[in-house]
Amino acid sequence: MNIFGIGLPEMAVIAAIGLLVFGPKRLPELGKTLGRTLRGFQSASQEFEKEFRTAVGTDQPTDISGPPAAIPPAADAAAPAVVVEESAAPSNGPAS
């Protein structure tokens, strides 16, 4: 088991130090508080993502493994497109 790069032995050492520092009565309270805090961060993150998607105009979550989404046409369709042409033979310097 590996959570955030911390293995089971490291977690046991952290729990033992927490037990020694806070005592057996306060340790469950701290665990509950930590769980509530993480749950609050998770719900705030989901709410932020929902608001962001609403503001951007995409209500569905994106799947980065699927095909790319279509890019909407530009607002100013009358603007000319810039075309860059490459020459067939590369130039090695000034012509002689």
Rank of each mutant, 00 (worst) to 15 (best):
G57V: 10
Q42C: 03
V83S: 06
K25M: 11
V13N: 02
G23H: 03
E85D: 11
L34P: 06
K32T: 09
S96P: 11
R36Q: 15
G40K: 09
K32A: 10
V56M: 12
F22H: 12
P94G: 00
D63A: 10
D76Q: 08
A88D: 00
A16W: 04
G7Q: 01
A69D: 10
E29Q: 14
L19D: 13
A79D: 04
S91M: 03
V83H: 08
K32W: 13
L19T: 07
E29L: 15
L34W: 05
I17F: 04
V83G: 02
R36F: 13
G23D: 05
I64S: 13
S65Q: 10
K25Q: 11
F48T: 11
L8G: 09
G18Y: 08
Q46E: 07
Q46A: 14
P72M: 03
A79K: 13
M1R: 13
G5V: 00
K32C: 06
K25D: 14
P9T: 08
R39E: 14
P24T: 06
L34H: 13
A74M: 06
P9Q: 03
N2P: 04
V21G: 02
A78W: 09
P67M: 03
V83F: 11
F4V: 09
S45N: 02
M11V: 04
A44K: 05
A70E: 14
A89C: 00
L38F: 08
N2I: 14
T33S: 13
K50M: 01
G23V: 04
M11P: 01
R36A: 14
Q42N: 13
R36C: 04
I14S: 02
A95R: 01
V56W: 00
A88F: 12
I64M: 13
T58E: 12
I64G: 12
P67I: 09
P90T: 00
P68Q: 05
F22I: 00
I17R: 09
R39L: 13
S65F: 12
Q42H: 14
A95Q: 01
V82F: 10
F48R: 13
A44R: 12
T33A: 15
E85S: 04
S45K: 00
P73Y: 06
L34M: 11
T54A: 12
A44I: 05
I3W: 15
A70P: 13
P68S: 11
I64W: 15
V21Y: 04
P68A: 11
F22P: 02
D76S: 07
G40T: 15
Q42E: 11
P28M: 07
